[in-house]
Design a protein around this nucleic acid. Sequence first.
DNA 1: TAACTAATGCAACATTGTTGCATTTAGAGA
DNA 2: TCTCTAAATGCAACAATGTTGCATTAGTTA
Lengths: 141, 141
Amino acid sequence: MREEDLKQRLRARNLRITPNRLDLLTAVDRFVGAIPHTKLQADLASMDRVTLYRTINSLLEGGLIHRASANEQETYYALCEDACLADAHQHQHIHFKCENCSKIYCLPLQQDLHLNTGGFKVKAFEILASGQCEACASQEK
Amino acid sequence: MREEDLKQRLRARNLRITPNRLDLLTAVDRFVGAIPHTKLQADLASMDRVTLYRTINSLLEGGLIHRASANEQETYYALCEDACLADAHQHQHIHFKCENCSKIYCLPLQQDLHLNTGGFKVKAFEILASGQCEACASQEK
DNA sequence: TAACTAATGCAACATTGTTGCATTTAGAGA
DNA sequence: TCTCTAAATGCAACAATGTTGCATTAGTTA
């Protein structure tokens, strides 16, 4: 994604355009799949550790990135779709973790889900899946 | 659940029957929904903090309890079904977090899911949902 | 360019989870 | 029931992860 696009997204959310934010967005954007926090910290080593946390928070609140929780311990982040609103992420997708290469991917959901059970009213959901990713599966052939 | 049943489950997995393990299982069993780690620590305050972690681990590995991850920060635990095997949990259910009372429930999944997308082979999945639980929904009437 | 507010960096702290080691205890066998 | 051994426990120390306060710097608007 071009830097101007990233800037545009920041402007659209009334977030100031700073080098840190652009660096962070670029790192998230360039990474194939969702990027783990440790990887962000390594890529952005010159950024203060605390600033990294706060920058992530701002972008989460602004709806530019979202958490792609998959593993218990590590946290992953990915860019949001254009359509995502700040506090109402519309992610009808699956967070998929490859057992082989450990990458996290956001896959589209190809099916309508009917999750309401008994008196429980489901308003939002997330699917965490694991298995073998496209790249690893094709290598085995 | 009767204490004898809990003991039986421990025996079935070749896990020694200790007061700590019984206390932990009882706490998990009694709690409505999945119990958060902080609540376990509070309920079992006399148990060493480290022992709590290790006891949880033993029971996880033994397949007597499972993680019901839902929230980003806190970890939740619930008793497994009888059918669960040690390292191949068969949880075709939804981990549901009530937005109102914050409880975590394990709900059955009422639909077959077809998650395979492109070359991605899904081997296991978990669904995290949020909304309004039965109890909170009925109170609003 | 000036002024205001948000963002940053640093220090300190809080929480969560882990490791090593000495001691105690559950369970198997004599 | 007693003895023995490995597993479980408690404690201390450490490691990783995330948070708060505060002084300084930098983006944005007029």
